[in-house]
Simulated scan of single mutants.
Amino acid sequence: MAICEFSTYVKQRADSLGLNMSELARQAGISRQGLYALLDGTTEQAKISTLITLAKALQVHPMVLFRELLHQLDFPKFSTASAKYRFDASGFIQDVTIPDNTTVFTGQVFTKVWEIQNIGHVNWLGRKLVCMDRKADIPVVPEYIAAPEAVRGLIPTRRIIDIPDTLPGESVMLSMEFIAPSYPCSLISYWKMTDEHEEICFPEAEGLSCMVRVVSL
C-alpha cells in the first residue's frame, strides 16, 4: 500500500465523521502542517504517539492505522494470539456507556454499550457475544436461618447478543441491558465472541466485561 492510500483512508474516515483537516488535527493534538506531512509522506518517521492520538480522533483502533501505514512495507498480517481463525483479530475501542467501576443503585436497570472493531483480515459473519457468567449455587439452609438472595450477580436481560456482519476495519456497537442485584456489592459480567458454530473465537483473549459498584438508595 502506497502512502497515498494511507492518506486516502484517513481523509475518507475523517469525512465520514464530518471532520475537516483542521478539526482532525486539533482533536489529534498535532499541527495542520504535521498532519499534512504525515499524510503526504514528507515526514521521515511517524511517531507511535501521533498515530495513537490520530486513531483516537478518527474513532478507530490504532492497529488499523498501523496496518494501513505499514502494509507498504509488507508488514505481516495482524492476528490475535490463539485466535480460532488465522488473521482474525478484535480490538476494543471504548465503553460507550457504563465504564468500569460505574456506580449504580440496587435494582437499577441500565444499558451497557461496548464499541469494538474488526482489526484483522477475516469477515465477521454470524457471530455472537455470549455471556460467560456462571450461575451461583444457592446452598440449602435451615428454616430458622435467613436464606441468601436467590439472585446473585448482574442479571442480563438476555445471554446472547447478535453481532452484525462486520468487515475488516469496521467497528460495531454492542449493547446489553442489565439489572443490578438488590444488595450492595461490586460485580463483573464477562462476555466472549463466538462464531456461527458457537465456538469461542478468541479463547485466550480478555473478552468484554461490565464492572459496576452497586450501592443502596
Results as ranks from 00 to 15, higher is better:
Phe66Lys: 07
Phe66Glu: 10
Arg67Phe: 00
Glu68Met: 09
Glu68Asn: 05
Glu68Pro: 00
Glu68Tyr: 03
Leu69Cys: 06
Leu69Pro: 10
His71Phe: 03
His71Ala: 14
His71Trp: 05
His71Asp: 14
Leu73Gln: 14
Asp74Pro: 00
Asp74His: 15
Phe75Gln: 12
Phe75Cys: 12
Lys77Glu: 12
Lys77Arg: 15
Ser79Asn: 10
Ser79Leu: 07
Thr80Lys: 07
Thr80Ser: 11
Thr80Gly: 11
Thr80Glu: 14
Thr80Gln: 11
Ala81Gly: 03
Ser82His: 12
Ser82Gly: 06
Lys84Arg: 15
Arg86Asp: 15
Arg86Gly: 09
Phe87Ala: 13
Phe87Gly: 08
Asp88Trp: 10
Ala89Glu: 14
Ala89Tyr: 10
Phe92His: 05
Ile93Thr: 05
Ile93Lys: 02
Gln94Ser: 10
Gln94Asp: 09
Asp95Ile: 03
Val96Glu: 06
Val96Lys: 07
Val96Gly: 01
Val96Leu: 05
Thr97Ser: 06
Thr97Ala: 04
Ile98Gly: 00
Ile98Ser: 01
Pro99Thr: 07
Pro99Gly: 06
Asp100Ile: 01
Asn101Ser: 09
Asn101Leu: 13
Thr102Pro: 11
Thr103Val: 12
Val104Pro: 15
Thr106Leu: 04
Thr106Glu: 15
Gly107Met: 06
Gly107Phe: 08
Gly107Val: 06
Gly107Arg: 08
Gly107Lys: 08
Gln108Ser: 09
Val109Ile: 04
Val109Pro: 00
Phe110Gly: 02
Phe110Arg: 01
Lys112Phe: 02
Val113Glu: 01
Trp114Asp: 02
Glu115Cys: 04
Ile119Glu: 01
Gly120His: 06
Gly120Thr: 05
Gly120Met: 02
His121Gln: 13
His121Met: 04
Val122Phe: 08
Val122Met: 12
Val122Gln: 15
Asn123Gly: 01
Asn123Glu: 07
Trp124His: 05
Gly126Thr: 08
Gly126Leu: 04
Gly126Ile: 06
Arg127Ala: 02
Arg127Tyr: 03
Lys128Ala: 00
Leu129Gln: 03
Val130Leu: 00
Val130Asp: 04
Cys131Ser: 05
Cys131Pro: 02
Cys131Glu: 04
Met132Asn: 11
Met132Tyr: 03
Asp133Cys: 10
Asp133Arg: 07
Asp133Asn: 15
Arg134Asn: 09
Lys135Trp: 08
Lys135Arg: 12
Ala136Ile: 11
Ala136Tyr: 13
Asp137Lys: 08
Asp137Phe: 05
Ile138Asp: 08
Ile138Lys: 11
Ile138Val: 14
Pro139Ala: 12
Pro139Gln: 13
Val141Ser: 07
Val141Met: 14
Pro142Thr: 10
Glu143Asp: 12
Glu143Ser: 09
Tyr144Ala: 08
Ile145Phe: 12
Ile145Asp: 07
Ala146Asn: 11
Ala146Lys: 15
Ala146Trp: 05
Ala146Glu: 15
Ala147Glu: 11
Ala150Phe: 09
Ala150Lys: 15
Val151Ser: 13
Val151Pro: 05
Val151Asp: 14
Arg152His: 08
Arg152Asp: 05
